[in-house]
């Protein structure tokens, strides 16, 4: 049973520098989620717009990563996790991703993910990027080469690694490894990429390059990013949601959230009085 949906902020609010109304890519509707008996998400409603950066902020344990990991059904990997009501409707399919009839592997082929800690596979740089194509059954060598090259270019890594594609991914620096993971996520042409605190294990220079990359990527793909760093959310996202104790407290255009939050709780968190 879907609870009646009430969006926290009017969706008509447009992003900075944008004249046209944003297009929905996915919409979280009255989502409830449990880890065993722990009620981790409580009736969350939130839109994710096409080719925009949406950020989730909030204190540790507020459920922002939990919400992110619902989008690619990552919770299905562990026993005891339960989608307990509501759903996430992906557009243009107008299909609930969390439905039992939806194959999580199909979901993950369209919604890719970049993790907190760079996690390159124990393979060469080339094979790391080719992985998502190979698991889809792509065998054609020249096609693989083209796709890997364009993914590495998309992740701003090509110039640094073009002469060492045969080296192990683990030989790269931390920032390069994270861009390799972004290239890996890009290679299969996903519609939405989830970033789970992608810069928390990186130094400030590597962080800056990842942030720049995220803003470039939104030209071609929708982005949902969880971050602990509020300045980062303010710098790179078009929309932002503030979560607390499993609930989405406020959602809106990033500038509005940061300059003129509607809720006192949001304001307290953003101004550092809490969290």
């Amino acid at each position: 049973m879907l609870k009646p949906v009430t969006l926290v902020t009017p969706v008509t609010a447009s992003a900075p520098g944008d004249d046209v109304a944003p297009v929905l890519k996915a919409e979280v509707k009255a989502l409830d989620f449990y880890y065993g008996s722990f009620h981790a998400l409580k009736g969350v409603n939130m839109p994710v717009y096409d080719r925009k950066v949406t950020s989730l902020i909030g204190p540790s344990g507020c459920g922002k990563s939990t919400l992110l990991r619902c989008f690619n059904r990552m919770h299905d990997l562990y026993p005891g996790n339960r989608y307990a009501g509501g759903g996430i409707v992906l557009q243009p399919d107008n299909t609930n991703l969390l439905s039992d009839d939806v194959d999580p592997i199909e979901v993950r082929m369209r919604i890719s993910m970049v993790f907190q800690k760079p996690n390159p596979f124990p393979k060469t740089i080339f094979e790391n990027v080719a992985y998502s194509l190979r698991v889809r059954g792509m065998r054609n060598k020249s096609e693989l080469e083209d796709r890997v090259q364009s993914a590495l270019k998309g992740a701003a890594l090509w110039n640094e690694v073009k002469d060492r594609l045969g080296e192990l991914g683990a030989n790269l620096s931390g920032g390069q490894q994270q861009r390799l993971c972004i290239a890996r996520a890009l290679a299969s042409d996903p519609e939405l990429i989830l970033f789970d605190e992608p810069t928390s294990a990186l130094d400030p220079i590597a962080t800056a390059s990842i942030e720049e990359l995220v803003m470039e990527l939104k030209e071609r793909v929708s982005i949902l990013i969880v971050t602990h760093n509020m300045q980062q959310a303010a710098r790179i996202s078009d929309y932002a949601g503030y979560m607390y104790m499993g609930e989405l407290i406020e959602f809106g255009v990033t500038d509005q959230i940061f300059i003129k939050p509607q809720k006192k709780a949001t304001e307290d968190y953003i101004t550092g009085r809490f969290g």
Partner: peptide
């Protein structure tokens, strides 16, 4: 984290076991 990386790319359990975990 390596397994999650593989699943997140749309790999099946068997692909993850053979192509990521075993290597």
């Amino acid at each position: 984290s390596l397994r999650e990386g593989s699943y997140a790319m749309g790999a099946t359990r068997f692909q993850t076991a053979v192509k990521v975990v075993m290597p």
